[in-house]
Design a protein around this nucleic acid. Sequence first.
DNA 1: CATCCTCGTGGAAACGATTCCATGTAATCG
DNA 2: CGATTACATGGAATCGTTTCCACGAGGATG
Lengths: 338, 338
Amino acid sequence: MGPVTIRDVAAQAGVSVGTASRVLNGHPSTSARSRQRVDQAARSLGYQANARARSLRRSRTDTIGVLVSDITNPFFAEIAQAVEQRALASGLSTVLCNANESVEQQDRYLELLVRQRVDGIVIAPQGDGSGHLAELDRYGIPFVFVDRVIDGVDVPSVTSDNTLGLAEAVELLAGLGHRRVGYVAGPQQTSTGRQRLTAFRTAAAAASFDSHPALVFQGDFRLESGRAGAAALLSLADPPTAVIAADSLMTLGVAFACRERQVRIGSELSLIGYDDMTAFALMDPPLTVIAHDPFRMGQLAFDLISEAMAGRVVGSTVLPSSLIQRGSVGPCPEGGPE
Amino acid sequence: MGPVTIRDVAAQAGVSVGTASRVLNGHPSTSARSRQRVDQAARSLGYQANARARSLRRSRTDTIGVLVSDITNPFFAEIAQAVEQRALASGLSTVLCNANESVEQQDRYLELLVRQRVDGIVIAPQGDGSGHLAELDRYGIPFVFVDRVIDGVDVPSVTSDNTLGLAEAVELLAGLGHRRVGYVAGPQQTSTGRQRLTAFRTAAAAASFDSHPALVFQGDFRLESGRAGAAALLSLADPPTAVIAADSLMTLGVAFACRERQVRIGSELSLIGYDDMTAFALMDPPLTVIAHDPFRMGQLAFDLISEAMAGRVVGSTVLPSSLIQRGSVGPCPEGGPE
DNA sequence: CATCCTCGTGGAAACGATTCCATGTAATCG
DNA sequence: CGATTACATGGAATCGTTTCCACGAGGATG
């Protein structure tokens, strides 16, 4: 009645469980006759080995965990897909978890992955590393960071450069006469949120932009905060002539707010987003973005965790980011330099 | 050295493993003293129970599988997120798998889920049910369909209506004078692909649209096929004046092709997409779509699998779909009825 | 005071696989 | 032909947990 076990297979094949196990795992010490009988029995019974039982005896589980911050963010969906596809090709299964940009949920999933005794974890982390990340070391589970890192936690990572693209973006705006540029920042509990804000501030200072603190709005990488950010920035007594948003979802939010307030992007307000999305090229106007390659990041992250699981030490990789100019940036609508 | 086990906890607390287990699982038959000592020991050792070992002894794994067709499709990402959030709230963990619109990969993941002995599966299926779906029955693993179904497989499902929205769409186009309407179909190995095509054909016939077979292009729910479809349709000797695409990714593809060929959407070519995406409202022009609610579908799908896992019999739900008019549909550019 | 519950506990069985070990048989070699 | 080796096999131990069972102590009840 219950699930068919290796015991049933062995019985039907008329051999011991030991022999059945050996045949099913391709152990060399098996006779042709046993192989034939066991394979036949397994097939006819529809036997599927219980992976939990197997991993109990073996030390490995042949499973990796992928913990992304928001699966509905196309950027992370792409990373997840890349890792998963590559894992599948290596015969590993993937447990995909979604922290939903919440530190508590991240911790909850980390605990889960530890309890499942996955062989390795690819994580786009947030927070200060105070939570369950320490458990991973205790349990000897190797992990790598992707996209984001945690300061002070020395782990291999695949990230992309967070300064070059922003510098390019600021330069572009400066060249077109913009001096008051708003910035919708990512959460400061993420390394990307922090690094991009710093990069923006540095570049903005170099371009002698207006450094009024109200020009930086604190978002959380979700669409709604982009909308709120744009609303706040556009309501300033001295509103910015251009806005940079720190990820694609918030960029979308800014675009929404502009539409609601009938602010024409590209002419009245220049907009540059971080991360590219397929639809961005088709928007009105097409969005100028700072792009990087999530699929590649995912692939490399898998390679890293794969190496780490094999016990080899690996280094980190930083991928480039670059500006893709489309139509959402125009000259500063106010007169030339006063 | 190795992971800390319940044995270590028991030893440190000076009790038997049995007692330790009872304490850790909140069994009532434990003394205050044992509780205190075991909890203390567990905490100081950083004990995390091995979930694989536990599920071996118990019959349950407290895990459900979610198998979607394409995780980078926002529609499915949303479904996955909804299921996962709800599962988490119920104390269940989720294994999220990505079939990548491939029947082989779907089968591979089904096998994996069976081997992992998940307690239930939510799946957006494809194919004819000939593969590993049968194993699920054999292993007594309950499963429910979401978004798509498989004919002849009698399983509870959450789907959305595939005819009403399309009928509305066709009506809208007919009212504006369109008679030659192209259709970029989804793969015929999916129920949604089939049903939507049928619904379109029925409505198109009722509106006496041109029924030339070349007006239907066979896509696969991925962006590239939308682009190819639009290219094919626009190259016809008698190109359509409007196009309907059967999912959001293909709609995006059509929009791309139009941009490449400098065909103005809304005036030269009307476009209606199936499934809504956040960015659609911001496109140039904003896209008119047939929308439904993936998040709700995911939530209901979880409720269904949850009931099924509890052994209760449940019925299926069909959610509505409806037309959201934005700016991508205009009057037929050719003269009135000839 | 004897009896009966109740309760907490330790020890052991069980879950389903893999792997070690000992054994018997066949094959090889001197 | 005897001794050694190689190989296939069955049985048992093992992985880390939960749960069953038996037992002893203590309290309540007659």
